[in-house]
Structures are given as C-alpha cells and as structure tokens.
C-alpha cells in the first residue's frame, strides 16, 4: 500500500479530459512518424476521380526491408498547412485515395498500415456533394474484403466515422495519449445535454481513453509515449514487423474471416 502511494506521487494517472487535451496537441507529426518508422517512403497522390486530398498522405515504404503500404491522416504542421488540411479532416477524395492505395496493396500482397489523427471527416459543402457518407461506407466495406494484413494506429484524435474508415483492420493500436470516440466530447455534451461546455464531464463518461478501449477490446495494444521519439518509432517498427509476420501465416480466407469476426463481436 505504501508503495502504491509512493508511486502515485510520481506517476499521475491522467483524467480522460487531460487525455483529450493531449491527444489534440502536436505531439507527433505525420511526416515524422513516416520517416521514423519506415524507410524509402515514396508518396503517391490522387484518387483518380476528383482530386488529391493533402490531409491523407499515402504511399509505399519499407518496414525492415519489406514493402508496406502506408496511409496517414495528417493535421499539418504550421497554420497554413493545418488550414489546407482542415486540421486533419479528410474530404471524400481523401478516403477514395486511401481506397485506391488499399486496392493496390491488395493486388501486390503488401500489408497496410494506417496512422490516424482526425477530429472527423470534414463536414463541408463539397464533401457532402461528393458523397462523404459513401466514401466512408465504401472504405469500411472494402477493408472487409482485403486479403492482406492490416493494422491501424491512432496517434492523436480518432474521431468517429472519419477515423473508422481507416480503422476497420485486423488490429487497432493507440498511442498512450490518443482518443477514439463516436464524437468529440464537446459535440457529445451539446447533443445529449445541450451544453458543449460540459465537455470534461462528457469525456469522463464516454470511455474514449486507450485504457477504456483496451478493456472493451476495441483496441489490441497501447503504445507508450516518450519524449524520445526515435524510441517510440523503434518500438512501433518492431511490433509491426512481429504482428505482420504472425498475420502473414494466415491464409487469405482466414485473415478476412478473422477480421470480420473481430468486428462481429461488438
């Protein structure tokens, strides 16, 4: 007991509201993660239908010398970058770019890694006209049919359907200070209690921290964060390599079956 009290002095368990706050800070940048975890990243652009959404970065890279497809939602670095990426809210053509790269990975039997940090899919006029709902629906449906191993990692905010579109994978991991939820705590409070200022309270009841989600089997693994970023990236690289090796042992049918069963359990 004495030991526990002693530990608590040094190790503060963050409240859900604190985790929400941290998840929105620029702790890790998309490009930094790509360069830190992978080698030889080559970026590809466009969905071949209507345009190229900068908030979704995609391409191929090597993970310990093995080719993988990497798809990352990026909030941007400076204010101009953030504005052009709508703070990481993809447009429908961003999701369609991701779909195209996933299909490509499937054709060439490459595993897929997605990194997610988004407040949600962009609620804009053009987004609606271009079918934001359909874009997300198709991302989810197509992910259920791909015969290659897929792992998604939420490294900041995992906002609703906009995050789920890239998180219907064999495994979902989260950074220690990331969140994954049906809606932002502000939106949740304003819908249920008509008062967006009660967001802290909302955060507490929503169960959006990695700890809560691990308990509910929504995610498989929590990545401990550190100020020493290379250390975090080394851990991710090793863990990804291990898990992909295990997933690669499954036949394509087993892999798809297992992925569907994973979500069937909810």
């Amino acid at each position: 007991m004495a030991v526990n009290i002693g530990l608590k002095l040094f190790k503060h368990e963050p409240t859900p509201a604190e985790v929400v706050k941290k998840s929105r800070e620029d702790r890790f940048f998309a490009r930094e993660i790509i360069d830190g975890v992978f080698n030889d990243f080559i970026e590809f652009h466009g969905d071949r239908q209507s345009g190229d959404d900068m908030s979704v970065i995609g391409g191929i890279a090597t993970l310990n010398d093995k080719p993988v497809t990497v798809i990352v939602i990026d909030k941007g670095t400076d204010i101009h970058d953030k504005l052009s990426k709508r703070n990481g809210s993809p447009e429908p053509w961003g999701y369609r770019k991701a779909q195209r790269l996933m299909q490509q990975a499937n054709k060439f039997h490459r595993p897929i890694v997605t990194f997610i940090n988004t407040p949600g899919a962009f609620p804009g006029k053009t987004a609606e006209v271009q079918g934001q709902g359909e874009a997300i629906a198709k991302s989810i449906l197509e992910s259920m049919k791909l015969a290659v191993p897929m792992i998604s990692i939420i490294y900041g905010e995992g906002g609703s359907g906009g995050a789920l579109a890239l998180a219907t994978t064999d495994q979902v991991w989260m950074f220690q200070n990331a969140t994954y939820s049906i809606l932002s705590p502000e939106g949740f409070a304003s819908i249920l209690w008509k008062d967006s200022k009660r967001s802290e309270e909302a955060a507490a009841v929503m169960g959006l921290t990695p700890k809560d989600l691990l308990e509910k089997n929504v995610i498989e693994y929590v990545i401990p964060e550190s100020r020493n970023h290379p250390r975090v990236f080394n851990l991710i690289r090793k863990k990804l390599d291990d898990e992909f090796s295990l997933l690669n042992e499954l036949s394509p049918e087993e892999l798809i079956q297992k992925r569907r069963a994973r979500f069937r359990a909810f």
Binding site: A137, L141, M144, L164, S181, I182, M206, F263, R264
Partner: peptide, 14 residues
C-alpha cells in the same frame, strides 16, 4: 459510445 461506432463495421462485414 464507441460500441455504436463499431456497429458500422459489424454490419459492413455482414
């Protein structure tokens, strides 16, 4: 909460 979100994936699998 999150269980509601997971239904989107569950139905899609079916």
């Amino acid at each position: 909460g999150i269980n509601s979100l997971m239904q989107m994936a569950k139905v899609s699998a079916a």
